[in-house]
Design a protein around this nucleic acid. Sequence first.
DNA 1: TGTACATCAGTGAACGCGCGTTCACTGATGTAC
DNA 2: TGTACATCAGTGAACGCGCGTTCACTGATGTAC
Lengths: 194, 194
Amino acid sequence: MRYPPERKQETRQRIIQKASRRFREKGEKRVAIAGLMRELKLTHGGFYRHFKSKQDLFGECLARGFEETRERFGRKAVKDAGRAGLRTIIEMYLSAEHCAKPSQGCPVAALMSDIARQPRAVRVRFENAAHDHMRRLEGFLPGKTEAERRRSFFLLFSGMAGALNLARAVADDETRRAILRDARQFYVNSFCKW
Amino acid sequence: MRYPPERKQETRQRIIQKASRRFREKGEKRVAIAGLMRELKLTHGGFYRHFKSKQDLFGECLARGFEETRERFGRKAVKDAGRAGLRTIIEMYLSAEHCAKPSQGCPVAALMSDIARQPRAVRVRFENAAHDHMRRLEGFLPGKTEAERRRSFFLLFSGMAGALNLARAVADDETRRAILRDARQFYVNSFCKW
DNA sequence: TGTACATCAGTGAACGCGCGTTCACTGATGTAC
DNA sequence: TGTACATCAGTGAACGCGCGTTCACTGATGTAC
């Protein structure tokens, strides 16, 4: 059936949104196209009208993941520019809530090792999305030059993503809370004092 | 055929060693039992004489991964106790070489997001292996009490694992080198000055 | 305004493949007598 | 010392399932006349 012209873009965006969450929740390999489309009340065949391949979709989903995270965490931070905003961002990033909901949080934290294993084409898209993400957070980052802020961004977010992942990996709740608490303190101390 | 009694343990260890490397290289989902056994010149059926399931093997492999990393990185650091040794460990952990060879390096860095998605039983084993790893590195860690050293350990290694993963994820060689260089500097500054 | 045709998002069967696990079997070594 | 039997690491076919991708088809809407 033919549908109104804006419908295709809508469907495409619905697929990306759902997939982006599923990927962050389950990992790249554990999300299946057919299951994904079924969740959207579509059939798997139509998928290839929107994406070249599963990998292509995965690439899109990384950028989308950053956007979603900004919407979730950025909003509250925006009222406080610079240092205070950064503190808010760090505390939200390393919160018990973000830890408990990988599907709605930072794609780097949720998909770190998956991304590292992707073919170059996907990693190029990841790098672009990460750079774009950085530019949108630049106002919060310590550093006088762009290069310094870039350095802060990569250090802070890779470190926090590592800590968050470790917190997700351990089995004991007390250990998990301790990891998050210590990391909040450490990253606030290290990055909110410039 | 029946084999000499020590043979079974040998085979078990051979499986763990090969699997541990394959897992770190490809991720949990992309390693297949049959392929793994074929690499060892065995057939897949025999696998279940040694392990209850693939998950069971994965659990074993995490502990083995830590051992291997200690053998690789610890040896050079051992001559310098404390601060100087820790600096060596940090520089090796964040080296271009470790970055390029996930299969022979830290299992946390290689499998971070995979571990976070495992069922509780596997995460319990991971946590135990991580604690054991910490105890063996305790002599290098800053902190007066065991709790302080534990805190240092989790902060330092989760942060470094995040940075290493990010370096592996980006596509551009220059960006990768910059991430590693900045991280070496940051973690040496933060942890080798107590 | 009405009619014939083109478009193309979405359908669902099918292809070819790989995977984790089970199971009846093999046969060299260990053990009981 | 010699013989009969038990053991069990390893074999390889089979089971049941899921996956990414392709493709002929459908049919409501858009377009040309």
